[in-house]
Each structure stands twice: as C-alpha cells, then as structure tokens.
Design a protein around this nucleic acid. Structure first.
Lengths: 241, 241
DNA sequence: ATCTGGCATCTGGTATACCAGATAGCAGAA
DNA sequence: TTCTGCTATCTGGTATACCAGATGCCAGAT
C-alpha cells in the first residue's frame, strides 16, 4: 500500500437508482395530481399507454404498478384493468386511526429523544398560523398542517414510524383536499398544535402522546361526519369487487 | 326475464388468484423457514434458480420479489444479487415500537368495539398458560403469545391496524425464535396478558392501551439488552449499504 | 511475487413476443 | 325484433431474449 489517503476525494456514485425508481416517482406524482374522488374522474390506467408516455417498456412499469398496488394506491384486476383506488369511508377512517397510533407514539418518543432545536422547529412551523388562524388559506394550511405532523414523526427518530405513516400520507392528502371544509377546524387545529408543542417542550411524553392522538382522532370524527353528510357513506365504486 | 331465481345456485369462481399469488405464498413460507440470523445462513437468492425450482419464468417471480422487497423481507441490489434481509438491532427495535403503537391503539378500540365473546376468546388463549407458566415450552409459548397479540389487533375491528402489524410479524417471528430466552419473561408475560384482558373486560380503553404498550415496550427493552449482550450490536451485514 | 488490465461469465434490468381471459359488437337464427 | 353465439380485439399475465453492470480469474508486465 503506497498511499493510504489519496489526495483526491471522490464520493461514490449512487448506482442503485434505476429506471424503476424514476418511473415510480413519476407515477406517484401523477396519481397525486389526479383529482380522485371527483365524480367524473377516469380511474382506469392502461399499461401500454403509460409505457408509451413514459418511454419505457411494460416490464419495469409493471413492477412499479405492483409496488403502487402494494401501497394501496392502485388496484390491479387481472385481465380487466388497473385502477386508481378510491378508499371507502371505512378505509379512510382506519387510515386516520392508524396515523393517530403512529403519530402519538412518535410524540411520546420525541418528548424523550428530540433535541431542543427540533422541538423548536415545530414551534416555528406553527407560529405562521398562530395569529392569522382564520384568514389562512385552507389549502395552504392543509399542506403545512400535514408537514407539521410529519415533522413530529421525524423527530421521534424512529424511521419506521415515519415510513409507515408516509404510506398513509398519499391518501390523507387526497382526502383532505376534498374534505377539509369547516373553517373553524383550522382555528381549533392551531390551538391543538400549540398544546402538543408545549407538552413536547415540557418533555411530557404521555401528555404529548395523548394530545396528538386526541387531535388526530378529532379529524377522524370530523371526517366521519363530513363525508357522511356529503352523501358519501361509501365513496368508492361501490360493491365493484 | 323468464327466470328470476334459477334453481341451481353457483358461487362465482375466484379468478383473481394468479400464479404470482402462489409464488408469493411459497416464497414467503420458504423465507420464514430459513434460519435467518444463523452465522452461516446463505442469504443470497438467485432469480433464475428460483424460477427453475418453482417451474415458472422470471417475470412473475420478479414481481413477487419486488413485493417481498417492499415488505422489507428482501433486499435487491441491482446487478449484484437478491438477499434475504437481516435487520439491524435498531430496525428491530423500531419494529417493536411500531408494533406497540399499533397494538396499543387496537386495544383502545377493542375496549369499545369488541364483543364480549371476542374479549372472552382472549382469556381462553391466556388460560392455557395461567397455571403452567414456568413449565411451558418456550417456542410454543412464543407462537401462542404472538397469536394473542394478533387477536387484540383483530378484535379492534380495524383491518388496517391488523394489516400493518402483519407486515411486521414476519420479522418479529424470526427475532423471537432467536432472542426469546429468559425464562422469567414468560411468567411476566402471562401476568401482563391477564392485566390487559382485565382492562378490556372492564372496557377501560385508556388503561388497556397503556398496558399493551408497556407490555410490548418491555419486550423492546428486553431485546435491546439481550441482543447487545449477545454481541449483536449490529446483527446485519454491517455497513453494507 | 506482485500488480495491472482484459475478458469470460454471472446477475439483475429492460424490451419484446406471445398467451389467455374479458368484452363488446355483429351476424344469423328464431 | 330479439336472442344467441361467434369473433375481433383489448388487457393483463407469462415467457423469453438481450443488455449492461459487477466479479473474479488469469495472462502478461514489472
């Protein structure tokens, strides 16, 4: 060994990103863009057409579709078609419950594991709305809101919790866009957030956990009422399967 | 319409089960059979060889492998190989945390939603060990133990919680088989279970939730110590990625 | 004996071809 | 006109061929 430390430093090239990964990103983004839950939404996808549009062959595309099916975004009906999956009200409510479970545990961990800076970052995020609660744009608030909650998951330093919640996020996003309506939820939400932050700052894990759970379960109850009121006892394609 | 109710009744044929599904079952079972975490375990898989053994082509097999990768059982390294994935201690601990999050929420729901019979079924499961705690076979107890916990998830009537936990189960199973050693954990576990059952019977959601979480987090702490003691600060292939 | 560079070969990634079930439209019979 | 059954065709499922990166062996140079 002549040279232990070569003068030139090179970062290894990430060779693990493959065509599939790009396709995945595109597809996921495209699906997020779609206005699911619109009455006239075209939920059917065509493998060959998609492959053409993306400029790839069906094989890698299919593997992506499989993956998206795993994540519950698509439904593949053999020899029938591939469909973007709408969720039933029950499924949506269950997702919110699962989210509550994950995030409340994250809050408990965060109260112990998060740094002061990390907790402070939550306060920064919330500060934006503390004064202008009522005037805030709902769509924008919705985005920031979910970022706030993801941040809690992140500062728990439990990667798995974040990852599992991320799988639910896609649906939550689509649902919120359609369901978030009651003005007064924004104000309540802001108050809840402050309560959560204070519990974390006080390093009260159990309290933070409870508050996060209660907060998310309020969304749960809200959605249950809202969707039911909107004549969507079952928002999916019905008894299709 | 001549006949509204034909005299012959036929159940629709389930045409949705495809080759992939069979392959999936086989592969998953085969991986579960493998003694992961054995020093000399051969973790490498070969697509072509597997396809031969199963008598199918690579394409459907690959889609299954993708799915198993999604579930965290495999790791596909492009142009290198496919490996059964060992988990690092950190990852295992995170899985236990996630499990605790899901199951404690399930217990909370179960306290409200489960029928008396369902809660009684838990007591039946636990009764088997209430008397013979020390004498019980560890492997057998381990299996029954995890069934008990899955049952709690089931009677929450939240399918998603069960499903998400099921994804973690595979690893929990493999880890338990190797880690479950301390005799006295069995006795403690039995006591914990009874406490959980009592809380559910009393319909005390918050209490049941706390007890479930504490119980699982005790496993968490136990595993953390046990694996560390067993010279497995990192049980995976190291800094491989 | 050691190091370097090329090549054979192994492995997963991608493309393409073909198969069979699902559908819908149409032709012919009643 | 209506019903039946055939068929063209569309769609996903499966098989196969080929591509390129990753590896390891080995010959030739030092």
């Amino acid at each position: 060994m002549r040279v232990l430390l070569p003068p030139m430093k090179l970062q290894p090239i990430d060779t693990s990103v493959t065509l599939k990964d790009h396709i995945y990103e595109r597809m996921r983004a495209a699906i997020l863009e779609m206005d699911l839950y619109a009455e006239d939404a075209d939920l059917r996808l065509d493998e060959r057409s998609l492959a053409d549009q993306l400029g790839v062959s069906r094989t890698p595309l299919r593997e992506v579709l499989i993956r998206l099916e795993q994540e519950g975004l698509l439904e593949v009906q053999p020899r029938r078609g591939i469909f973007v999956q709408r969720k039933t009200l029950t499924e949506i409510l269950e997702m919110i419950v699962a989210w509550a479970a994950l995030e409340s545990m994250a809050a408990r961990l965060a109260a112990e594991a998060a740094s002061d800076d990390e907790i402070a970052s939550l306060r920064d995020m919330a500060a934006k709305y503390s004064l202008t609660a009522q005037g805030a744009d709902i769509a924008e608030y919705s985005d920031d809101n979910i970022r706030f909650h993801q941040r809690i998951l992140d500062i728990s330093h439990c990667k798995l919790l974040s990852k599992m919640a991320a799988g639910l996020f896609v649906h939550m996003h689509a649902v919120r866009r359609r369901a978030m309506g009651e003005e007064d939820r924004v104000a309540k939400s802001v108050v809840d957030h402050m309560g959560i932050i204070e519990a974390l700052e006080a390093r009260e894990g159990a309290l933070a956990s409870d508050r996060v759970r209660d907060h998310t379960m309020r969304l749960h109850d809200h959605v249950r009422q809202f969707w039911r009121a909107a004549e969507h006892t079952d928002i999916s394609k019905g008894e299709a399967r």
